[in-house]
Design a protein around this nucleic acid. Sequence first.
DNA 1: ATCCAGGATCTCC
DNA 2: GGAGATCATGGA
Length: 289
Amino acid sequence: MFYKEQDNKIIMKDVKSFDIAQTLECGQCFRFYKIDTNLYTIVANKKVLYVKQENTALTLYPCNINEFESFWIRYFDFERDYCEIKKIISEGDKILQEAINFAPGIRILNQEPFECLISFIISQNNRITMIKKIIENLSRTFGEKIEDEYHSFPSPEKLNAATIDEMMVCKTGFRAKYIKDACFKITNQNLILDNLFQLEESAAREELLTIHGVGQKVADCVLLFSLQKHGAFPTDVWIKRVMEEFYFQGKPTSVKKIHEFALNKWGNYSGFAQQYLFNYAKEKEIGKK
DNA sequence: ATCCAGGATCTCC
DNA sequence: GGAGATCATGGA
């Protein structure tokens, strides 16, 4: 991988194991907009970033070298060797090999913890298109205007000050009270999401589970997609289906058993395996009735 | 119209 | 400690 700054753009060459479309559209994040084939905008870090991809070349703009090195390089997980990870988790596993070949350009993003937490609270019993709409509504209502029609994700304080009814207008539904509790604990009860980064995975999970409306699946998404706890294995309906179909002879299996199996098989790389499998299962509708 | 969605909680046994 | 109903909302 090579990069340089030119005219307030970051030019990257020879970027391995990365596809902007696959990475954004695999269900791990929600604040992106498809402008054209292989041209996307992303809202994060209170900024709008354009990402254009041509094979292994990327152009990120507007962006200077400082913004790139202090935020985006970590956001996209550019410094991690995914060739090595894919090799490790798929060795002797035809299923995972196929899932990886289906979308080899997926990387696990390092999103901002608060936005990630609220996003996956919203995700429960919901569809991805609807999740995106609700997050957009919250950002337009409680975030700050950045440029054009782009808005930043609201701060915990701003969202905490909102009433349940104001959140319901954004179509949060029954999840409004869950969002409220998360914001309250963060704003008033010294729950500091950034501190979870230093904790062990299990300790960080325990903290997240204290929030009313955060269960194991949502907690695991936050751990994996924003806190670099790669042993987390978020198990939703799709992962349950694909795991039962391919690793449990099509038999109904408890989430507990699935977690044990994943941890034993993939250890601290479980989260990566999970994302390739999730994307594969959803796109191919594995096990759907 | 009925079912379901990157689930969590509450109730009941 | 596990099964079942319930929760808003809208698209299929």
